[in-house]
Measured scan of single mutants.
Amino acid sequence: MVQRGSKVRILRPESYWFQDVGTVASVDQSGIKYPVIVRFEKVNYSGINTNNFAEDELVEVEA
């Protein structure tokens, strides 16, 4: 279970941040499909630095 402030590695192959490390900004408990919002240092092609992920697409590298 990841929690706010954890450092996580992204396992979603189609993601711009695949294999990159980001910080968990928040975790939604309402039961949505992609409840974990992760914030990154670098921006993607659209200038965005956050994205939603499912918990099984993340691996915690640092608490």
Rank of each mutant, 00 (worst) to 15 (best):
M1V: 12
M1H: 14
M1C: 13
M1P: 12
M1S: 14
M1D: 08
V2H: 07
V2M: 11
V2P: 10
V2Y: 14
V2R: 04
Q3I: 10
R4C: 13
R4N: 08
R4H: 08
R4W: 03
R4Y: 03
R4F: 05
R4T: 13
G5H: 02
G5W: 00
G5E: 03
S6P: 03
S6D: 09
S6A: 13
K7N: 05
K7A: 06
K7E: 04
K7H: 09
V8F: 00
V8Y: 00
V8P: 01
V8W: 00
V8M: 00
V8R: 00
R9Q: 07
R9P: 03
R9N: 04
R9C: 12
I10R: 03
I10Q: 02
I10N: 02
I10E: 02
I10D: 02
I10T: 01
L11I: 09
L11E: 06
L11W: 04
L11Y: 02
R12Q: 07
R12T: 07
P13H: 07
P13R: 12
E14W: 11
E14Q: 09
E14L: 07
E14C: 12
E14A: 07
E14H: 09
E14P: 01
E14F: 04
E14M: 05
S15A: 02
S15L: 04
Y16E: 10
Y16A: 04
Y16F: 15
W17M: 00
W17I: 03
W17Y: 03
W17H: 01
F18T: 02
F18K: 00
F18A: 04
F18H: 06
F18Y: 14
F18L: 01
F18D: 04
Q19S: 07
Q19H: 09
Q19V: 06
Q19Y: 08
D20S: 09
D20P: 00
D20N: 07
D20V: 09
V21T: 08
V21H: 04
V21G: 01
V21K: 00
G22K: 00
G22D: 04
T23Y: 08
T23V: 13
T23I: 13
V24I: 05
A25V: 15
A25C: 15
A25I: 15
A25G: 04
S26T: 08
S26H: 14
S26E: 14
S26C: 15
V27E: 02
V27G: 02
V27I: 14
V27K: 03
D28L: 13
D28T: 06
D28Y: 01
D28F: 04
D28E: 09
Q29N: 12
Q29R: 14
S30C: 08
S30A: 08
S30R: 09
S30W: 05
S30K: 06
S30E: 05
S30T: 13
G31Q: 12
G31H: 10
G31A: 11
G31S: 09
I32W: 03
I32R: 08
I32D: 10
I32G: 14
I32E: 10
I32N: 11
K33Q: 12
K33F: 07
Y34I: 01
Y34R: 08
Y34N: 07
Y34K: 08
P35G: 08
P35V: 11
P35S: 09
V36M: 03
V36N: 00
V36G: 00
V36A: 01
I37Y: 10
V38H: 00
V38E: 01
V38C: 05
V38S: 00
R39Q: 13
R39K: 12
R39A: 10
F40T: 03
F40N: 03
F40L: 01
E41F: 04
E41L: 07
K42R: 13
K42G: 06
V43G: 10
N44C: 11
N44W: 09
N44Y: 07
Y45W: 13
Y45K: 15
Y45T: 15
Y45E: 15
Y45A: 15
S46F: 14
S46G: 10
S46Y: 14
S46H: 15
S46D: 15
G47D: 06
G47P: 05
G47Y: 05
G47N: 06
I48P: 05
I48F: 10
I48M: 14
N49A: 08
T50N: 04
T50A: 08
T50Q: 13
T50D: 05
T50M: 11
N51W: 15
N51D: 15
N51Q: 15
N51L: 07
N51I: 07
N51Y: 10
N51K: 05
N51G: 15
N52E: 09
N52F: 09
F53N: 03
F53T: 01
A54K: 08
A54C: 09
E55A: 13
E55V: 14
E55G: 06
D56W: 15
D56Y: 14
D56T: 09
D56H: 14
D56G: 07
E57S: 03
E57L: 04
E57K: 02
L58S: 01
L58Y: 04
L58N: 03
L58I: 12
L58M: 06
L58V: 12
L58R: 01
V59P: 02
V59S: 09
V59T: 08
V59L: 12
V59C: 13
E60F: 11
E60K: 11
E60Q: 11
V61C: 08
V61R: 02
V61H: 03
V61I: 12
V61M: 07
E62C: 14
E62N: 12
E62W: 10
E62K: 11
E62T: 12
A63K: 12
A63N: 12
